[in-house]
Design a binder for these strands. Structure first.
Lengths: 142, 142
DNA sequence: GTTACTGCAAACGGTTTGCACTGTC
DNA sequence: GACAGTGCAAACCGTTTGCAGTAAC
């Protein structure tokens, strides 16, 4: 959990106060190895007897997104999920069990080509692969 | 609008009835050269004095998606948008004016590689590029 | 002490649903 | 004539907001 100090640092540098609630949310984001919804964060907070309102979770997540600390991802179901911004990567999602796996970027140089071709200034790209994970393939066969 | 006949055909083949409402929705989807939200379809229907309820629009869009006739796209804002499924392509979105431009796929063979590498059965992938279109870049400078 | 932040409750907006009626096949 | 599809109104659920009280700096 030494990472937490880095993130607290980042908050302070941006002039954002380090409240208990924000630290608790950051902790969960750091611990989670997959994108996580506001609701999921909320229930994990509930478990750990630190009482934080759902609206607070949303407010802070949105602020983190605005500050570029957190990325908001919209998946096929209606729920948005959030992850810490550290490296550039993409996601492979199992359509059966919703497991999300990070993937390295197969389009490293492509943005420049695209920019030349279209005249757009490319700011970011997002890729999602959808499929069936090995486990769920097995389950389907049996 | 000769395309419309093809789509009607596709509905019939799937045993879906060709109601006025469905035809009207299909027409709008065919005419639109960019993904379009349920609300937008609804207002266009309203203009053309064919009265269709918003819930009917949603019900039919969902059915079309289930039948593989229409693709549902989730963009960064909360609204989902829909487009007819005809070819495989991706989207380039302007963050200022929300213009959506189709793009050919830069990852034609990648799915196979990924499948070998991860053991996943890859069913589809979606890519979105976000940036500023030439017009909006100009506007920002001035 | 100031002012950003939180709790709380209520609103909001996109989407879905239940039910009686209607129109397609 | 049967049954899928529609209109209508109400519910649903993720998310946002207004306001008064609280805590970080």
């Amino acid at each position: 959990m030494e990472q937490l100090l880095n993130w607290e640092e980042r908050l302070k540098n941006k002039g954002i106060r380090c409240t208990k609630q924000r630290i608790a949310i950051l902790k969960i984001l750091i611990t989670s190895d997959t994108p996580i919804s506001a609701q999921e964060i909320f229930s994990q907070l509930d478990d750990s007897n630190s009482k934080v309102r759902l609206s607070t979770v949303y407010r802070n997540l949105n602020q983190f997104v605005a500050e570029g600390i957190v990325r908001k991802l919209n998946f096929a179901d209606q729920k948005n999920k959030f992850e810490l911004v550290d490296d550039h990567h993409h996601h492979l999602v199992c359509l059966e069990c919703d497991e999300v796996r990070p993937l390295e970027c197969p389009l490293e140089q492509f943005d420049n080509q695209l920019s030349t071709k279209t005249g757009y200034k490319i700011i970011e790209h997002r890729i999602k692969f959808y499929g069936l994970c090995p486990k769920c393939q097995e389950n389907k066969e049996s």
